[in-house]
């Protein structure tokens, strides 16, 4: 009996009501606006990480590239001592906290039944690379542009958001074997 009970307790809990989760997310975003005067982000932190890494490997190469230089700043402080970098570390921690509380932490590869693990990982890499590239071109990803700019009624962000959905829906058919 006892054993069975603990089994039940460690079942992953169902997800939160999406509207309430959204309101929670919106309040976090609002808090960021009120305290910092800026919204949330994600991809920018990885740009800083990459720029810092590139500088270590090849400082000469980085010096000639405007893109990396922007993330390295004026060189007085480490590029990793950056707001978005710390925010993203927090995202990892927050995800871990929520996942642990709901017993949802499990080593896993998420995919549909009709694709191999290797295939899924290859697609994950390709999709990630497109995300990284697209996010830089659009000056932000779903967090920095869609959420943050969406709440600020930013024209570019709304155009961006429509295109994200358009692109994803248009391509979903070709990816159905991966997910369905």
């Amino acid at each position: 009996m006892n054993h069975q009970e603990s089994q039940i307790n460690f079942q992953p809990k169902p997800y939160m009501n999406p509207y309430l989760a959204g309101i929670g997310l919106g309040l976090v975003l609002l808090l960021s606006f009120v305290i910092m005067g800026r919204g949330l982000g994600a991809s920018g932190a990885f740009s800083s990480l990459l720029s810092a890494g590139m500088e270590k490997i090849s400082p000469e190469h980085v010096k000639s590239n405007e893109f990396y230089l922007e993330y390295l700043g004026d060189g007085t402080t480490s590029p990793l001592k950056d707001w978005l970098v710390f925010e993203v570390i927090g995202v990892f921690a927050g995800g871990l906290l929520s996942g642990a509380l709901a017993h949802r932490i499990k080593k896993d590869i998420e995919k549909g039944p009709r694709i191999s693990n290797f295939g899924r990982l290859a697609f994950a890499f390709i999709g990630g690379a497109m995300m990284g590239f697209g996010a830089k071109l659009a000056r932000g990803c779903t967090s920095g542009q869609a959420l943050t700019g969406g709440a600020l009624l930013n024209v570019g962000s709304w155009a961006f958001m429509l295109c994200v959905f358009a692109g994803a829906y248009a391509f979903a058919y070709f990816m159905r074997r991966q997910w369905r």
Binding site: F123, M130, G134, L137, A138, C141, A168, Y169, A170
Partner: peptide, 17 residues
């Protein structure tokens, strides 16, 4: 950028955040 990101979303399954 949005279109590329959208396609990347459905291929990769996540967004950066």
């Amino acid at each position: 950028g949005g279109l590329i990101l959208g396609i990347g979303f459905v291929i990769g399954g996540y967004c950066p955040g």
